[in-house]
Structure formats: C-alpha cells, structure tokens
C-alpha cells in the first residue's frame, strides 16, 4: 500500500545521521539522503484518476476548465429549475439569499450592491463556485456543460453577454467582467502610526450613536418570555 515503504522514517533518519557523524555508516546515510522528495515516507502516490476527480478548480487564465459548452438559453432553463427558488427568477434574490445580478455603478454609493456584474473581477470565479458549491445543498450535481450554460446565463443577466451567446472553454478567457481592475493590494498599514497619547488626548467626547436605539440585538428566549 505504501509506495514509499523503502524511505526511512524520521527517527531512523536521525539515527543514520548520528551513525554517519561517527564515520561508520556513510553508505546508509547516502541512501537516506536520496530519499527525496520528502523523507518521512508517509502517504502514498495519488493516481491521476484520483486527482482528476477532486481537482476541479478553475483560475482566471482558464486553467482547470474542462472541455464543454453551454448557451444562455440552456442556462436559463437550468437556472429556473435549479437556482431561481433561492436567487429569484432574474437573480434578484429571494428572501435573504444572495442577489446575483445588477448593482451596476453602485460601488461608490451609500448602499452598494456587490454582484457578478458590479463587483466580481473574473467569470472563472462564477464557473468555479457554481460547480463546487451550487445548487446549495446539492453541490457537484451539475455537469460541465450545465455549468457552462448556467454561467453563460448569469453573464447574460449581468449584461456581459448577449442572449444568443454560447460559452465554451475556447472563448472563456475572452469574457471580461466590468470590475476586473477594481481590486488592488494594500501596501502595509493604511493608517498613520505613532506613539499613542496617554493624557488629555481630547477636549470633549460625545455619544453620537447607541446600539439600544436600533434594537436589533437578539434576546434570549427566556428573557423574551418573561
């Protein structure tokens, strides 16, 4: 079972090191050193089939996309059947389930709506997420073609593609989401630094907001009953 049965376990390696240091077992020490990669001899080789079954992630450059295709129209059918109950017929969201479309140009507003169309940088994220996690509670139940189709439909809902669009592995990286360049990495701290003040730090302080006024804090049932 263990493909690395011949590799020394750590204790043995250490002991061999000691032996080598004593100048007694150079040959043995050499064989331990050639136990690359690794050195603990634990685990076994993962087969290509095993990897293929689990390695289904997709990157923005298209790495990981399987062959396949799906149209906006096919996607709409699948969406209405498998997704709309939670996300609404047009991706507007039902109840507190996530909204999947719209919110265009809302990112600077007081109440931004972050969706695939307004916020997400890459279409690959849609493909990856839908096939790994959706429908909620029935993950990994969409075929590759169905995932292409639903992704195409979500792109259509977000005005990224036309209604006759067919999404394929080949044209995937040509799809560009509007907010692709909206993200950047912070360079260190974004706040001024310095020694903190200890005495007479401010002239006056005033309470300008109180949690109790809002009254959104859950209460224990026991209390509520009282």
């Amino acid at each position: 079972m263990c493909a690395w049965a011949s590799v020394a376990v750590p204790k043995l390696t250490t002991r061999l090191g000691v032996v080598a240091a004593l100048g007694l077992g150079l040959a043995l020490a050499a064989s331990a050193a050639s136990a690359e990669p690794g050195g603990f001899g634990l685990g076994r080789a993962a087969t290509p089939e095993e990897i293929a079954g689990w390695d289904v992630d997709v990157r923005p450059d298209g790495t990981g996309l399987p062959p396949g295709e799906g149209s906006v129209q096919e996607g709409e059918e699948i969406y209405l059947e498998r997704c709309a109950a939670c996300h609404g017929e047009f991706g507007e969201g039902a109840g507190r389930y996530p909204v999947l479309m719209g919110g265009f140009d809302s990112l600077e507003e007081d109440r931004p709506e972050k969706t695939i169309g307004s916020y997400w940088p890459y279409a690959s994220t849609v493909w990856d997420y839908v096939q790994r996690a959706m429908p909620f509670g029935e993950a990994r139940s969409l075929s590759d073609d169905e995932t292409y189709a639903v992704t195409a439909f979500l792109l259509y809902l977000n005005e990224v593609v036309e209604d006759d669009f067919v999404l394929t592995r080949e044209n995937f990286t040509e799809v560009r989401l509007p907010n692709r360049d909206g993200f950047f990495m912070r360079d260190g701290s974004d706040l001024p630094s310095g020694e903190p003040c200890m005495k007479d730090c401010k002239a006056a302080v005033e309470v300008i907001g109180r949690a109790r006024t809002l009254d959104v804090t859950p209460e224990d049932e026991q209390q509520a009953l009282e």
């Binding site: 990157r59 923005p60 695939i116 997400w120 940088p121 890459y122 994220t125 996690a133 993200f183």
Partner: peptide
C-alpha cells in the same frame, strides 16, 4: 503559480 481568485477572495 498564481492565485485562484475564488469566490471567497473576490465576492
């Protein structure tokens, strides 16, 4: 050799 930009690091 690159980040994946999955849902939990974008949306």
């Amino acid at each position: 050799d690159a980040a994946w930009y999955h849902r939990e690091e974008t949306s």
